[in-house]
Amino acid sequence: MKTLAELLATHPFFRDFSPEHLELLSGCASQQRVDEGDFLFREGEVAKAFYVVRHGSIAVTAVTPHQGLVTIQTLGEGDVLGWSWLVKPYRWHFGARALEPTVVVGLDAACVRGKCDQDSKFGYEMMRRFAQVMASRLEATHLQLMNVYENRS
């Protein structure tokens, strides 16, 4: 049985994280199981955590006026889910639903934010990684917005 710190250490998102920082982070971590079809969180709810996916797959969903719930992105093993916990007012911009039985490690938002405030080096490491998550999300949105495959004629 691995400790949470050991589990986090094997996740690509925390590659090159120092053992002290992993220890710090694992104090905010808990493992969670989500059944197929269940929501981990819904759009508009208070974002109390972020998640790293260990097994399974998760659909990031949005509620749209005409089509109802649509999937905008799918995430799987090795991905990180959620950045709304980082920016006020800490509400989920999207929902997350398991597409199959899925195991995640949840990191408590208030706990992580508190540790970021206390240890600015740790805080910087976290921000650097989440900046990449947000940049990738922005790039993907940009591409989807341009609708590059659309037949223009």
Binding site: V70, T71, I72, Q73, T74, G78, S136, L143, Q144, N147
Partner: peptide, 23 residues
């Protein structure tokens, strides 16, 4: 295979093709 926009009957990846590259 990934699609930019999923449909209810689609159970595969959703997301732009670049998102498949890191893994």
């Amino acid at each position: 295979v990934t699609v930019d926009r999923g449909t209810p009957s689609w159970h595969g990846n959703v997301g732009v093709v670049t998102s498949l590259i890191p893994k």
